[in-house]
Computed example of a mutant assay.
Amino acid sequence: MKKGGILAVAYINKFYILPHILTGANRLALHDNLINKVIDNGVIKDGEEDCFWTDAYFSTSIEMEEFLSCFEVEIIDHAAIDGLTPLLRKVIDNMNEEYKIWIDYQLKTCREKSILGISNHGLIVCKKI
């Protein structure tokens, strides 16, 4: 990447996996071994007994920032893409006029560190230095 180039890095937050399993169709995948695997190393592999999806790597917002610090980039933005939306999906899907208020809330809170820590997806935008 050239100096001044922009890099966008998306990731799936490992702390979202348990709420995802609990609220989705993958409840059978919920067991200690899977949760320990996701929290401890963030990796699941297709074909493994406790794999609920496909080959995947899950991270945290802090781990991603630490990883990117190994490169010649400056983080210029870091946002929670989903925030709490997936956990409130049924309520949000039934909103009408309130939906704009929800979107405004999302935009105002998507950079809040505590929300970054639970959002399903995160996005980090970097600039090559």
Score class of each variant (00 low, 15 high):
34 L>Q: 06
5 G>D: 08
117 G>L: 05
33 N>M: 07
52 F>H: 15
51 C>G: 12
99 Y>P: 07
21 I>C: 02
37 K>M: 02
74 E>Q: 14
84 L>C: 09
4 G>L: 02
95 M>F: 15
59 S>K: 06
30 L>Q: 04
100 K>Y: 15
128 K>D: 05
18 L>E: 11
21 I>Q: 04
77 D>C: 04
28 L>P: 00
81 I>F: 09
44 I>A: 00
46 D>N: 13
20 H>Q: 08
15 F>W: 13
98 E>P: 11
87 L>N: 04
78 H>A: 01
52 F>V: 05
57 Y>W: 09
73 V>T: 10
58 F>S: 10
59 S>Q: 07
68 L>E: 00
7 L>A: 11
77 D>Y: 02
55 D>T: 09
36 N>I: 13
129 I>L: 15
114 S>Y: 14
118 I>H: 00
56 A>R: 08
34 L>H: 04
124 I>H: 03
64 M>F: 05
69 S>C: 09
31 H>N: 15
115 I>L: 15
117 G>W: 02
29 A>S: 15
7 L>D: 01
21 I>K: 01
4 G>K: 05
99 Y>L: 14
61 S>Q: 12
14 K>T: 08
92 I>L: 11
129 I>V: 15
28 L>S: 06
18 L>W: 11
106 Q>W: 13
30 L>M: 07
31 H>Y: 04
3 K>Y: 14
102 W>F: 14
9 V>K: 00
50 D>L: 06
45 K>R: 14
10 A>R: 14
10 A>L: 10
99 Y>M: 12
17 I>P: 01
93 D>S: 15
25 A>W: 05
33 N>S: 13
66 E>S: 09
79 A>W: 04
72 E>D: 12
41 N>P: 07
37 K>E: 08
30 L>T: 04
88 L>A: 13
125 V>S: 14
19 P>Q: 12
44 I>F: 02
88 L>S: 12
104 D>Q: 03
91 V>Q: 05
45 K>Q: 08
108 K>Y: 08
53 W>N: 14
103 I>C: 02
27 R>A: 05
106 Q>P: 06
8 A>N: 06
65 E>H: 11
42 G>T: 12
109 T>P: 03
35 I>T: 02
76 I>V: 13
68 L>V: 05
22 L>K: 12
75 I>S: 01
57 Y>M: 06
40 D>S: 15
101 I>V: 11
75 I>R: 03
32 D>L: 11
9 V>H: 00
85 T>G: 01
114 S>T: 11
74 E>R: 12
41 N>Q: 13
26 N>C: 07
19 P>E: 06
118 I>Y: 04
